[in-house]
Design a protein around this nucleic acid. Structure first.
Length: 584
DNA sequence: AGCACGCCGACT
DNA sequence: GTCGGCGTGCTC
């Protein structure tokens, strides 16, 4: 017998080994096999009857039985192809820790999906969605897998669902035990992060992704694909019931749900806060608190409630101080970055460089102002204005807590009497086509977090922005409509796909630039591909980045066109990375 | 001739 | 991802 094994190596191919007599292997088992003289752990993907001579033998069995069914091997192969990664590295990143020394474990073969099972997909929104998930999974007869964006969230959900934890914070022995128990049908609900994506819950199962719009669902490293995409594909393969949950779904998800006829379940309940927009146009300000926000802090704390003030991580971008217009790239639609020293504006995407105009093209105003306030400035202002209140950047029990959107999660539902978004424009001005989506997500999440009768104060020079209007009226479609129109017109996801190619290393970054230019040449002039000019990033331009826009088949196109370059992508000191569907 | 470095392919 | 083989070119 011959076993074909894939390893954590770049490249497509598998390696064939002789199965020692008396040993039974199945696809989905990990084994150690000699590779370049040393035993290495890989995954068996096929076992076939053959008599090939001159092959090395499997050295050792790592998993006594397969840890995943064949359908999960296919899922991992699909994910690898979609992310321009290898089958082996994707698969090995998705399997639980190997068995410990103890040895004897109850094992069962993971169940294959039944061909008859039909997939269904649902998008769940509204403040009651999480309680509903707890109810439905509690009442469901079948098994469930819940994927959270990070370990902390996974641990919270595990507690809430009384489910078994399968995230990286759980001890290795426990993770393995949970995995095996799931395969035996002993664990009804399994909760984890992306490392649990292949957990062998018996199909057809309920497959849920919580906070599906969270960028943490796609951190660096394998598998190099958004957890949501892997779960959607898994549901198609296994025929399970797919649930995507979010306060504010990603625009891609919203579009897909409509295009593919998914069920939208709006679990809206309860009151909605009064949304106050504090228009900061034309106001000369030397401190970050407008009158409406000052009043909200005063009244809320007087009523014994707490206030959260949300700030961006860094102040960014430049806008007209009079009308609030953002200076945008006419080709890419992204806000232009301000190079203060040269008094120039530059586009982070296409590299367009132009002088800072004398006057605002919209209102002829002649003052431009930076868009944000950092947390230090905000904290100092609050302390000066309210010397008797407890103010903190870390303690969510303080009367006024200042931080990023994390403080909302930390505060817990219904704990906040008011939320103030100090500078929405800093979010809107980020040089990223998802800036509007992020702003909308933050506002919606903040509105859901405010307790009944509370207030959401938004300081912005764009009170008419669709994200603000949609939250004010509690109408999601008022945001997604214009947002998707923008994406379609300028060719952003979900209508087109992006791929980011970065090179680093080499003396002084010259080699990196040469490598990237080699990639650019290979992709140039191909129908339906747009190749943006290479841009240096990082300190002293040590990295060079190339963005490519293309159709849904972009991974296949890139794989074919860059086959030669990718084959030699890793040279001693320089590295080329290909990232499909980058999230930032 | 002897060695260093970098390029390139190979890994069963 | 990593290792080693081999060609180029420099040095003793």
């Amino acid at each position: 017998m011959i076993a074909d094994v894939v390893f954590d190596l770049p490249g497509e191919r598998s390696f064939s080994y002789l199965v020692p007599p008396g040993l039974t292997l199945r696809p989905g088992q990990r084994v150690a096999a000699p590779l370049r003289g040393r035993p290495r752990v890989g995954v068996v993907v096929e076992v076939r009857e053959s008599q090939a001579a001159g092959l090395a033998s499997i050295a050792r069995v790592v998993d006594p039985v397969p840890l995943v069914p064949a359908s999960s091997l296919a899922l991992a192969r699909w994910a690898a192809a979609e992310s321009l990664s290898s089958w082996g590295s994707t698969l090995l990143a998705l399997l639980p820790p190997p068995p410990g020394a103890s040895g004897a474990e109850p094992m069962a073969l993971p169940a294959e999906p039944r061909a008859s099972a039909k997939p269904t997909a649902e998008l769940w929104v509204g403040a009651g969605r999480e309680a509903r998930l707890v109810d439905e999974l509690g009442a469901a007869r079948g098994s469930a897998l819940v994927i959270a964006p990070d370990r902390e969230t996974a641990a919270r959900w595990a507690a809430r669902l009384d489910g078994a934890r399968l995230d990286g914070d759980a001890p290795a022995a426990e993770r393995r035990a949970v995995w095996l128990a799931a395969a035996r049908g002993r664990t009804r609900t399994v909760v984890g992060t992306r490392s649990a994506l292949l957990a062998p819950v018996p199909p057809p199962a309920t497959l849920a992704v919580v906070d599906e719009a969270d960028a943490a669902h796609k951190p660096p490293g394998h598998p190099r694909l958004h957890s949501r995409e892997i779960m959607v594909e898994r549901a198609w393969i296994e025929g399970g019931r797919l649930l995507l949950l979010a306060a504010a779904p990603a625009a891609e998800t919203w579009w897909r749900a409509r295009a593919e006829g998914w069920t939208l379940r709006d679990h809206t309940l309860g009151p909605w806060p009064e949304v106050v927009t504090a228009d900061t146009r034309g106001i000369l300000r030397n401190h970050p608190l407008t009158l409406p926000l000052t009043r909200a802090i005063e009244e809320t704390t007087r009523g014994g409630r707490r206030v959260a003030l949300l700030v961006g991580r860094r102040p960014a971008g430049l806008g007209c101080a009079e009308c609030g217009a953002l200076l945008r790239c006419p080709d890419c639609g992204l806000p232009l970055g301000h190079q203060r020293a040269r008094a120039m504006l530059s586009c982070a995407l296409c590299g367009r460089l132009e002088p800072l105009p004398d006057r605002c093209p919209g209102c002829r105003g002649h003052r431009f102002a930076s868009l944000g306030w950092d947390a230090d400035r905000v904290e100092a202002s609050v302390r000066r204005r309210f010397p008797r209140l407890s103010v903190s950047r870390t303690d969510v029990r303080a009367q006024v807590v200042i931080g990023t959107s994390r403080v909302i999660r930390a505060a817990g539902p219904g704990e906040l009497g008011a939320v103030g978004v100090v500078a929405l424009d800093a979010l809107l001005g980020a040089p990223d086509f998802r800036a509007g989506e992020r702003a909308f997500g933050l506002l919606w999440t903040a509105a859901e977090a405010v307790r009944p009768g509370g207030r959401l104060v938004v300081q912005t020079r764009h009170p008419e922005h669709e994200a603000v209007r949609a939250v004010t009226r509690r109408q999601r479609a008022a945001f997604y409509g214009p947002e998707l129109a923008f994406r379609e017109e300028l060719g952003y996801p979900p209508f087109r796909r992006l791929c980011r190619i970065t090179a680093r290393g080499g003396a002084g970054g010259g080699a990196a630039r040469a490598l990237v230019q080699e990639c650019a040449r290979a992709l140039e002039g191909i129908a339906d591909l747009k190749v943006y000019p290479p841009a240096a990033t990082g300190l002293a331009g040590a990295r060079v980045r190339l963005l490519v826009k293309g159709p849904a088949t972009l991974p296949r196109l890139i794989r074919e066109l860059l086959a030669d370059v990718l084959a030699k992508r890793r040279r001693a000191d320089r590295v080329v990375e290909v990232e499909m569907d980058p999230v930032s």
